[in-house]
């Protein structure tokens, strides 16, 4: 049993040294040139280091080497301080939907459930390299649908995700109050110009609302402080 084991070891032992013809016992000469050795042959061969100091190397950075080490603040060196403060300052939300608030549908569930993982796209690459052409009228005939609502089993995608707080990143698309994924009226998204205009318009609308609100408050304050009104609103004034 034991001899078998040894035989096995012998079988797998390398035929040649991984270091080539070099002996691991004899140290190699220093490439820096600071090491001087005297090799004496004869009855008693020996290697004597006659240089000033054994193992003396050039200090790092002196020979024009890159001085970048862990001693430097690498975050600052690569200009990532902004990213650091961005992620360090606030507590990030766990869910994917907080990162992609505009995405319709439920995106927080694991992708394995409906085989929609990005990993599967990498593992099994889709067919590519073919030119993308618009569909012919004959091909479009395949998309002729029957009127009426969808069968029950296909309606699950219509479910809306639970309401979320509006994040600052939220840029556009959904109207106020309507959570993403909820069916908002159709708009022409194919034209980027109209797309942009719509958002600008929406923004302007919001600005107008705010401005009106501020004006109203100002007016109310003025009325309160003016001696004429004595802090009464017009409706509170006694009838003449």
């Amino acid at each position: 049993m034991m001899s078998d084991q040894f035989r096995k070891v012998e079988q797998y032992s390398p035929k040649s040294s991984p270091r080539g013809a070099r002996s691991p016992v004899v140290p190699r000469q220093d490439s820096s040139g600071t090491l001087k050795t005297t090799i004496s042959l004869g009855k008693n061969p020996s290697i004597v280091h006659s240089g000033p100091f054994y193992l003396m190397k050039e200090p790092p950075g002196s020979a024009g080497e890159c001085d970048l080490t862990g001693a430097t603040n690498l975050m600052a060196y690569y200009g990532l301080e902004h990213s650091y403060s961005k992620f360090n300052g606030k507590k990030l939300k766990e869910s994917l939907s907080s990162f992609l608030p505009n995405l319709p549908g439920i995106v927080d569930g694991p992708g394995q459930e409906d085989n929609s993982t990005l990993g599967s796209v990498i593992a099994k690459r889709p067919i590519g390299g073919k030119e993308l052409l618009p569909l012919t009228s004959a091909q479009l005939a395949g998309f002729r649908l029957h009127p009426g609502p969808l069968p029950e089993q296909y309606r699950y995608v219509s479910a809306t995700p639970p309401k979320r707080h509006k994040s600052k990143h939220k840029k556009h698309k959904h109207k106020d109050g309507a959570p993403p994924g909820q069916d908002t009226p159709l708009q022409d998204s194919s034209n980027p110009d109209t797309y942009e205009k719509k958002h600008k318009k929406q923004k302007r609308h919001e600005d107008d609302k705010e401005r009106k609100k501020r004006k109203k408050e100002k007016k109310r304050k003025k009325q309160k402080h003016s001696p004429e009104h004595g802090g009464l609103t017009p409706s509170q004034h006694p009838a003449p």
Binding site: L92, E94, F99, P110, G111, L118
Partner: peptide
């Protein structure tokens, strides 16, 4: 991609790396 596939915020990965 693993983070996204698990329905997690990918910024957590960036934060973790930093």
């Amino acid at each position: 991609f693993d983070y996204i596939d698990q329905g997690r915020n990918p910024q957590l990965y960036t934060k973790d790396c930093i």
